[in-house]
Design a protein around this nucleic acid. Structure first.
Length: 156
DNA sequence: GCCAACGTTGGC
DNA sequence: GCCAACGTTGGC
């Protein structure tokens, strides 16, 4: 079992939005970065853990946990001319962009802000905290995932 | 709203 | 294959 962190701007799609979905499940469409796509397409497996992160938020924070409930399949929004993320280079026979489905598990009582995360020794090497890091879908080490969940419980 | 750090595109 | 120009991300 692997662990991941997925970013979303809460003004566009928040963890509350996820929780309000039927079955608390959504497809993670719109990712248009190759590295992020590769993680979703090749490495995400059913049951993997996901940290839900609010970017461009005040404060930016890890706000809860989700899980992978469907492995990768083509992101059809890339074929939709009216979609914001339309990409004419992606076709149904040769899809360029892929997505997974995630389901809400838990919303932390208190989001864990970036500055708080930086104080956790176990997170020293975390991709999220690397200067200049922008990856919207990124792998997380088990010890990092566990440390964050533990901290969330402590702060609750 | 600013802007540094990235990623992508396309001319050459 | 280089790299300048451009677009995007995301903290602040």
């Amino acid at each position: 079992m692997k662990y991941w962190l997925m970013k979303s701007e809460p003004s566009a799609y928040s963890i509350a939005d996820l929780e309000a979905e039927p079955n608390k499940t959504t497809c993670w469409d719109g990712v248009r970065n190759y590295q992020a796509r590769n993680f979703m397409r090749d490495d995400m497996k059913l049951g993997d853990g996901v940290l839900f992160y609010h970017s461009n938020a005040n404060p930016p924070a890890v706000v809860g946990v989700a899980e992978i409930v469907r492995e990768s399949y083509p992101d059809h929004t890339a074929w939709d001319e009216s979609d914001k993320h339309f990409d004419p280079k992606s076709t149904p026979t040769n899809p360029r962009w892929w997505m997974v489905d995630i389901r809400h598990i838990d919303t932390f009582a208190t989001g864990i802000g970036l500055d708080r995360l930086r104080k956790v020794a176990a997170l020293k090497e975390m991709e999220l905290l690397r200067k200049g890091s922008r990856l919207s879908v990124q792998p997380v080490r088990k010890k990092e995932f566990d440390a964050i969940v533990k901290l969330a419980k402590k702060l609750a």
